[in-house]
Amino acid sequence: MTFINYASREINCKIVYYGPGLCGKTTNLQYIYDSTAPTAKGKLISLATETDRTLFFDFMPLELGTVRGFKTRFHLYTVPGQVFYDASRKLILKGVDGVVFVADSQEERMDANIESLFNLEENLKSNGYDLTKIPYVLQLNKRDLPNVVPVPDLVTELRRRDEPVHEAVAATGTGVFDTLKSIAKLVLTELRKS
């Protein structure tokens, strides 16, 4: 839910990175964090297990610039991807303004992608949102690996509407900012329509 503060002249929005376990959600945030000027970002908070798997969420605030004299701040969250953390995923989607689905392009993760996407639709629905109507972007991650599914096949299987699709290698940063720009634009465009 967007929060507009006339006193501090800020527009705050919430973006959630969703996807199956080990698809690269945290890696997306880590790359954004590492590549952003210190003045434009806050701390990257990771609530992770001892083996660095996301336990609850990762969070980082990011300032993109000014629109009509108002600072635009995006609060980026990831969800834990592992199937049994579903209650946490549902909580993190509350008040969301835009969603990025990070798909793992490897052939053996295709079922996990489909299951996670179905889970996203369900959890959005339980929070009163509709995947076909909210700002939404699909990222096809890990395109550098040898055993990836061809892009057209992934699109056929995972694209739910006319959402922008970005190929990415989050570990090296390829496609990470393209994805972020896409979702930020959609969120601001939706805000204008509201």
Binding site: F3, A7, K133, L191
Partner: peptide, 15 residues
């Protein structure tokens, strides 16, 4: 189809 934005005015912020 996201939630209605919350808009806080300066006067409300002051209070």
């Amino acid at each position: 189809m996201t939630d209605t934005p919350i808009i806080m005015r300066e006067q409300q912020y002051g209070r």
